[in-house]
Computed example of a mutant assay.
Amino acid sequence: MTSFETLKTNSYYLLVQDLDINEVSEPFNFTNFIIYFVLGLSVLINIVLLFIKKNNRRHKSTSSGSKRDHDAWYNTLERNNNQLKNENRNLKSKIFELEKKLAVKKEERKDFPVENRIQPTISSPVIEQQFVDEKPRTVEFEVMKPTVIYLPSPFEDNRFSTEDVSNEQMPTSLYQIILDASNTTGKLLIIENADFTRALNSPDHYLEKACIYENAFSPNANGINIVEPGKVKLENQDWLIIQKIKIKFI
């Protein structure tokens, strides 16, 4: 801006000086006219360039402001989405705890014997009361089958998500947990009739997070045998692997 004002002042000074000289010496000089025209044109070009530069700055500031608004909007949506996911996990955990308590109460009611109520009878002193021997009763105990749940690969090392649990074997199921009576611990196994194609193609994703190898992995392996089952326990929203499965490639 300072250079522009200096140029404008010098141009005006030269214009006045030349006008004074021309009034004294010559009535009209074509060379001076060209010089004045070039100076005027340069001033006009500087004004246009300055105007374009200001518009570019305004455009950049507007673009940066809209980008910041879009980033803030996206971050807000992402926070809300994460909050909804956490609330969903908490609700599922509460429902699971309630179902577990309800199952325990049902088991307690089954085990609680029903007391036979003896109603007093009024008997005559002359008539003797006769007691009939009851026939022996056969009590049958129902053996409860252990509950089995099915899971795909762990979402991280030593952890399965409860959101991936299914009560039936699915095409993506690779592991199964045989639950104990508490339903909070269990035995971890690989499903023997599962499709091991993906597991053998990507063992680092499907196997290493939940298994230890007895022999070295081979790309030419056709199947997997369980040498020793693993152990898991329920921890918050996840099934935590406390002992990995020992497997052998065949």
Rank of each mutant, 00 (worst) to 15 (best):
V165N: 02
N90F: 13
E134A: 13
I52T: 13
D133C: 05
E128T: 11
V132N: 12
N158V: 00
I52R: 14
L50W: 14
Q130P: 02
T76S: 12
S66W: 14
N167V: 03
V126T: 15
L151N: 03
P171G: 04
N167I: 06
N158G: 03
N56R: 12
N81A: 15
R57E: 13
T147V: 01
V165L: 11
V165R: 08
R68M: 07
L84F: 13
T162M: 04
L84C: 08
S63Q: 15
W73T: 06
E108D: 09
P146S: 11
R89F: 04
Q119D: 15
T76G: 07
R68V: 04
K105N: 10
N158W: 04
Y150F: 14
G65A: 15
A72D: 08
Q83V: 00
E97F: 01
Q83K: 05
E168I: 02
L98W: 11
E99Q: 15
L91W: 08
S93P: 01
E115N: 06
P171A: 05
S61W: 06
K60I: 12
Y150K: 08
F96P: 00
K85I: 08
F160P: 04
I149Y: 09
L102E: 08
Y150I: 04
L91T: 08
D157Y: 07
F51D: 02
L179F: 07
I95Q: 11
E163W: 06
P120N: 03
L179G: 12
T121Y: 13
Q130F: 14
P154L: 04
V132D: 11
N167C: 05
F96Q: 00
E163K: 05
